[in-house]
Each structure stands twice: as C-alpha cells, then as structure tokens.
Simulated assay, not measured.
Amino acid sequence: MSTNLEDQPAADFYDFEAALSEEERKILLRTRTFMRDEVKPLVNENWAAGTFPAELIDKFRASGLVGLPYEGYGEQGAAAGHLLTGMMAMEMARVDASVATFFGVHNGLAMYSIQAGGSQEQRDRWLPGMARMDTIGAFALTEALGGSDVAVGMRTTAEREGDTWVLNGAKRWIGNATFADHVVVWARDVEDDSVKGFVVAKDIKGFTPEKIANKTSLRIVENADVTLTGVRVAETDRLQNIESFRDVAEILRATRSGVAWQALGVMIGAYELALDYATEREQFGRPIAGFQLVQDLLVKSLGNITASWGMLVQLARLQDDGVFKDEHSSLAKAHVTARMREVVAWAREIFGGNGIVLDYDVARFFADAEAIYSFEGTREMNTLIVGKAITGQSAFV
C-alpha cells in the first residue's frame, strides 16, 4: 500500500485511503487511534449491559473530531469533505456501530438539520456548543405507527398560538434522546399540513423520553420512545428554512450516505476479526486460513468490501461536486447494507461456535448489522427510489 498511515485496515485492498490528502489522513488516523484507545475498551461491557458509557462524551469533546463538516464551527474552521467524513464514519463503525450511530445522530442528523434548516442566528446559537460537544443533539422523525410512510403519515402535530407552537404526539427509536440537550422534532402543522422542524430542549415541560429496553442490536445506543404532550416551543426555536417534508428529505438524502459508510465499517470490522481468527485458529494441525472454504468466505467478503468502498468514494465525489441526487444515496444505502449482511454472516461462520460469544466481538457486529440494514430507509424503500429514477415509473403504493 502506498499510504503509510499506521494500522491501515487490512480490508483496504485497493488503497482507497490514498484518495485523501495528507491532512485528511492525519484526521483519519486520529479517528482510528481514538476508537482503538478510548472506545474499544468500553464497548463489550456496555453492549452486554445495554448502557451508554457517558464518559465517552468527555473523550469525544477532547478528540477534536466533532463538527468537522461545518465550516466555522468545527476544529478545522473549513468544512471537511464528504470523503473524509465518510471514512471517519467507517472507522468508527469498524470498532463499534453503536458509538458510530451515537456520533452520527449528533454530528450528522441533529447538527445538519440545524445547519441546513436553521437561520444564521440559529446556527450561531446552537452549532458552536454542539461542535464542542458541550451539548448533545438528537433527531426525532420516526413514529411508532409511521416508518417508511412518515412523509404522509406523520401524526405528531404542531399548532401555532401567537409566537408559540404547541407540539403533541409521539416519536419512536430516537437515538440519544434520553440524554440529549437539543432534540430536533419534526411535526405536521395543523393549519397548512406541512412538516416543520423544532429544536426542543430536554427539560421542557411535556417532553418525556423513555429508553427502549431489550434491544438485540445497537445496544449501546440509547433509543427512546418520546412523548410530546402540550410542549410549547417558541417561534424562534422553529427551524426557519424548513417549509415542507421535501426539506426534510434533503437532510435525509445527505445523511443516508453516512449510514452506507457505517455499513462499510461494520463489514471491515467483521472481516478483520475473521481474518485474524482464521490465521490463529488451528484445526487438523494447521490454521483454518489454509482451508479452501475459509479462503472462499474471506475473498467473497473482501470483494463486497472493495466494491462497496469504490461506490462510496465516487458517491463522496458526487456530493462534493454538488451533483448528488436521492437515487445516488439510496442505491448506496440499499446495496452496501445488503453486502454488509452477507459479510457479517460469513465472518460469524468462520468463528464457528465462538462466533456467538461476545468476547470474540464478531457476534456484536452480526447483531448490530440488523439495525443499520433497516434505519435511514429500508432496502425496499431505497430500491423503489432508485427504480423510479432509472425507469421513470413510480412503484410506490
């Protein structure tokens, strides 16, 4: 490999990291080192307990990794490009998908909603603290009875009373909501039926988050059921540049690519575990890496990783060039997460019985892949978005 970054993933068979500048490589290495040294030691214990390690927030705060996509707010000053931020998401998920999701909700969904949907005054009010992780963000869109159809089936309402909005309804699967300082809540205006966005403070009356228990995937992420009962939000806390669900879709289009990068990271993490295990585990007097069927699984995994990585590098270029479309992120999310499902299953297979024991890590990757496969648009919904783009015919019911 031409790059001399330490600990370069064994899965980077085509040297995709060479596409980064030297400065970007340093940031990627900082991410890799942070995840290895600060995050990995905390993961399995908290995954097993279903708890979020609160000390990670201070660690992230000191890392200089938060807010990099936001010009003038993150440590760099200038906005980081999509290739770097994508590879950072990949590096985080390579160690743990739950921590990558916590970071993606805060640094992606919540902060980007304010960046894209807020006025300049609102950006200046909320983003600096979020970029320092002095305050934590969450994103409340999904509802218990509204997933794929949330664009037309949103039941949470907003009713204006002078300079105040009254929110009523419920949200589900809201990551970070149990401890977030700012929750971006999406609600339907009862007057004009359009979707609007509101930044809701955690201690406001009528806002009640309840942690979802007994999850079998992304157990470190504190997803919550959120109830909003007569929550009164000032007009100054309504995102001023959000006029309809079309604006929300623009936010999801941008963040969906980050989920695809997370899926790539999960693939890489599982593959590297399986590769290391295969070279160390002996059967019949030799490492199982020397058996044809094991090599077949490893090579198929590497093929999925390499093809997905190439797709995402080009996707990042489309984003940076400003020619990025819904169907581009949808194809990436649908394809890469499907390939991820294959790779984590093959990796678990290589571990045999040990593959179901948390101590070996691969079971965590196997379980966490299921959530990533589903959120930010199911494979079926993303398939229909791409299908409409390539045929000109809508197959949505």
Rank of each mutant, 00 (worst) to 15 (best):
S244K: 12
D193K: 13
Q240E: 15
E243V: 08
R253S: 02
Q240N: 12
D247L: 03
H182G: 00
V226L: 12
D192F: 12
G258F: 05
I212R: 01
T229R: 12
I242F: 07
E235Q: 13
A263R: 07
V190Q: 06
F179V: 02
G269Q: 14
A249V: 08
N223K: 09
F245H: 14
E272W: 02
V259I: 11
A289F: 14
I268T: 14
A177T: 06
V226H: 06
T216S: 14
A177H: 06
A254H: 15
N241T: 09
R188W: 04
R256D: 10
I212G: 00
A213H: 13
V226M: 09
T227V: 14
T279C: 06
K205L: 10
T227D: 11
D237E: 13
K202G: 09
N214C: 01
V266K: 00
T279F: 03
L218K: 03
Q292P: 08
A234Q: 09
E243F: 13
I268F: 04
G258V: 04
A234C: 06
A213K: 14
D247K: 03
G265L: 06
E282P: 06
F198W: 11
R286C: 08
G230V: 07
R238M: 15
R219Q: 13
G285S: 10
T255S: 12
Y271G: 05
W261F: 15
E280I: 00
I212V: 09
G206Q: 11
K202I: 00
S244V: 03
V266A: 02
S257D: 08
H182F: 05
R246F: 09
V183C: 10
A270R: 07
G175P: 05
S217M: 13
P209Q: 04
E210G: 07
I268Y: 00
L293V: 15
I174G: 06
F245I: 05
R219H: 08
G230P: 04
V266Y: 02
R281M: 11
V184R: 04
A177Q: 06
Q283F: 02
Y277M: 05
V199D: 06
W261I: 04
T255P: 07
F198Y: 14
L293P: 05
G175C: 12
A260G: 03
R188N: 12
E243R: 14
E235I: 10
V221E: 03
L239E: 07
L275V: 04
E250V: 02
A234H: 11
S194W: 06
Q283D: 09
I268D: 02
G269K: 04
I174T: 13
Q283E: 15
L228E: 01
D181H: 14
L273E: 06
K202V: 01
E243I: 10
L293T: 14
I288K: 05
E235W: 08
R286F: 12
F245C: 03
M267Q: 11
S244C: 08
D237T: 00
V233G: 04
E243C: 10
A274Y: 00
A224C: 07
A213G: 03
G285W: 04
G269V: 05
A289Q: 02
A270L: 11
I174L: 05
L273A: 10
E222A: 07
L273K: 08
N176P: 08
L228G: 01
I288A: 06
Y271C: 05
W173H: 15
